[in-house]
Each structure stands twice: as C-alpha cells, then as structure tokens.
Design a protein around this nucleic acid. Sequence first.
DNA 1: TAGATTTGCAACCATCCGGTTGCACGATAT
DNA 2: ATATCGTGCAACCGGATGGTTGCAAATCTA
Lengths: 105, 105
Amino acid sequence: MTEPRVDAVFGALADPNRRYLVEALAARETATATELASELPVTRQAVSKHLAALGEAGLVESARVGRETRYRLTPGALGDALGWMERVGARWDDRLARLRRHLGG
Amino acid sequence: MTEPRVDAVFGALADPNRRYLVEALAARETATATELASELPVTRQAVSKHLAALGEAGLVESARVGRETRYRLTPGALGDALGWMERVGARWDDRLARLRRHLGG
DNA sequence: TAGATTTGCAACCATCCGGTTGCACGATAT
DNA sequence: ATATCGTGCAACCGGATGGTTGCAAATCTA
C-alpha cells in the first residue's frame, strides 16, 4: 500500500517552485527550461532539476525540438493523488464525500 | 502566491508512513502515538514527529488526556490541497474539470 | 567556418528529513 | 512510596534535496 506514484506526485507538489512550474505550464501549454527560469529567482539548472522531478512524478513530459527541449503537462498523474484524498478523506470530510459520490468512485 | 498551507499539506502527504497514519486515524477516529507506532516499522518517536508534521499541516489535532495524548483528524486542511489541484488541474484534465463544475468552484 | 545559444552532465555545498537512542518528567497503579 | 507507563526533549546520523558553478556538446545563425 505504499503506492510510489502517489509519493512522487505529492512530493513534487510540495515545493512552491515546482507548483509554480505546473501553473505556468498549465497557462502556456508548452515551454522550455530557460523560459521558465526567467520567471523564477533560481537558475536554469535548478528549474531543469525541478522539471525532471515533475517528470518522474508523471506530471510533465518533454520533447526535444532542435536545440531546445519543450515541456508539456501530462494529464492523469494528478488523479492518483486525488484518488488517495478521495478514498481516505471521504471518511471524515463530507465535502470530499460529495465529491466521491459525484465521480462514482 | 506561495501558500504555505498547501506546502505543508502536500509535504505531509508525500511520506508513505504519514499517509498511513492519516488512513489509520480515519479508521479509528482517535489514537495515541504508541498505538500507531505498533503498526508501523518505526519507533514511537518517529511516529510522534510525523504526527507533529501532520499537525503543522493542519491535518491532525492533539489533546492530552491523563498521561496519554490522543490524536484526531481535522477536516478542512485537505481542502486546501484539493483546491489547488482543482484550480490548476482543471485546465488540462477534464476529470478535474467535471469535479470543479460539480462542486461549484 | 566561426560565433552564439541551449542544453545536459558533474561536482559541490548547506540544509532538511526520516530515523534512531538516551533520558528526564508527569501520571497511574500497586 | 515505589514501580511502571506514556510522553516530550535533545543529540546524533546518513541520505535526500534544493541550490549553485563550471564546462563540454549539440544546434542554429552570420
């Protein structure tokens, strides 16, 4: 019951910079590491590492185009984390319970 | 936009032992650190630290009764994390979008 | 071909994190 | 009064983490 995927997703989302990257990618649809680094107070390499972590978690995928690598969000991985919240949270939070009923879990 | 509460919640949920504690508390409604430690391959002090982390995140609250401290789940904090997923995830995951519509975000 | 860009890789650093052990203190039970 | 139980606090340890710098390689552009 350790569910390593959930681990990675929650872990990835625990960092504010990483969450910002996800938000930025959700807005832009696609971007490179250097582009994203220009909006954060950290180095391009740091952003690159963060994107790698998001990739490990299955939240982001990358594709090299010419000399640059463009990153895009991946649907589905968030669902793992949501699924956990849904399953456990429903027991004591009725808002979550409503959610579970609506989705037909 | 750093939202420290979301940080703490995602961070807390990133650890498998911590997630187990939440599940256990959801099942039992209330428990002590030593009780919970008996179901995990770690020390009572480790569990105590984890419960402290969950407390910081607002997921758990404690009350001392006699010589023992009993822990209970707190509703609401999960909603912060869920809110973030809802807000950001809805852009590219239609399952999340359905969810948002149902809850009337 | 020469120069500028964009990336990836590796080393390095300080700090955080999960875990342990040891011990002292308040509360119960005998 | 004494032994026991449950807790909290502090020190310590190894490994992960977020961040940096430096550099070599690949890909445009002039």
